[in-house]
Write a protein that binds this DNA or RNA. Structure first.
Lengths: 190, 190
DNA sequence: ACCTGAACACCGTTCAAGT
DNA sequence: ACCTGAACACCGTTCAAGT
């Protein structure tokens, strides 16, 4: 890639990130080009359409998730808190620009397209699950993709509905309780 | 309302329902007007913008939920199956046009706007919960709105990601297990 | 090879002119 | 009172002309 091309590419990506956070996923492409100081044609030379632009941005964000999972595991929390904290990290990471959560969750498990985009999320989630399984803290029957879908659904709802942090946390806690052997609320055992 | 106005109104609503199901929530307004056999101005006279059109359509669909709840309760299913069947009915009802689930779920609990749109859904869900509570089948701690949000999140994901019926059911089962006193999978009791 | 920006097709929305 | 449809502003996308 020639130096000027690289420069255009980087500027477009940086500006697009800002604009999508500000105005949502439907922001004007022409404005992105203008703000990046490039012609409209340059934008389309590097990113054939809006989808490509969003995909590249989202891939960046999802890559950061692996760092988040290590950090979460190292905190040494009890199972329920660990799970909820991890879910919150996921929601935060995939909600970086409005509409992003819905987009990523829609691609989840879709082997045909953009495998690597959600693969990172799935493996990160997997390692949290394994950690909890090793401690016998989790019931069987739910696989990683399903859990990612549920959490992604919460992220999409929180994103679209402008949910408060506490409300989002409550939803994630409900999911966590469905997965754990010993949920917070008392169980009536025979 | 004059007779010709009523006629325009009805035709627009009917055609819009079809077009939104076919092409999703972003379908062209001009095409809706053309297919309905009215001028563009007539469409905007009755529905100031796309939101109004979608709101009226969604309200219609949500109204049908009350019928669904009565039918579900009358089936006499055991708690887990009842809950899952009900959740499936909700997903089916709020997913009538692409993007509809996300839209409704975003408005959920938002007292400022469109209260009556989701109110019907919330009260219907409430009556299912009460039915299960009376049988001691449900753990405390989750209120109606939260559950509607979770189910709405699943609906949005299923809608956007083109999930199969069985995959959707699995997600709803996970939510149900989080709510029930005695989930399907074996619990290890002390 | 890469960039520019005018140009094209299309879309949401408006409004003067009609009945 | 209601409807029509040309018109306007805007947007995604393309492409001939430049360096």
């Amino acid at each position: 890639m020639r130096a000027d091309a690289q420069r255009s590419y980087d500027r477009i990506l940086a500006v697009a990130g800002d604009v999508f956070v500000e105005q949502g996923t439907n922001a004007s492409m022409n404005e992105i080009a203008k703000r990046a100081g490039v012609g409209a044609g340059t934008l389309y030379r590097h990113f054939p359409d809006r989808e490509h632009l969003l995909d590249v941005l989202l891939k960046d964000w999802v890559a950061q998730i692996q760092a988040a999972v290590d950090q979460t595991l190292a905190a040494g929390l009890p199972p329920r808190e660990l799970l909820i904290t991890w879910f919150e990290a996921v929601v935060r990471h995939i909600s970086v620009h409005r509409g992003g959560a819905a987009r990523l969750t829609a691609a989840l498990g879709n082997t045909a397209s953009m495998v690597d985009k959600w693969q990172g999320l799935a493996t990160a989630n997997q390692s949290v699950l394994r950690h909890l399984e090793a401690r016998g803290a989790i019931r069987g029957g739910a696989d990683t993709i399903q859990i990612c879908r549920l959490v992604g659904g919460v992220a999409a709802v929180a994103d679209a509905g402008g949910l408060l942090r506490d409300d989002t946390r409550d939803l994630l806690a409900l999911i966590a309780d469905g997965l754990l052997v010993a949920p917070a609320a008392a169980l009536r055992c025979p």
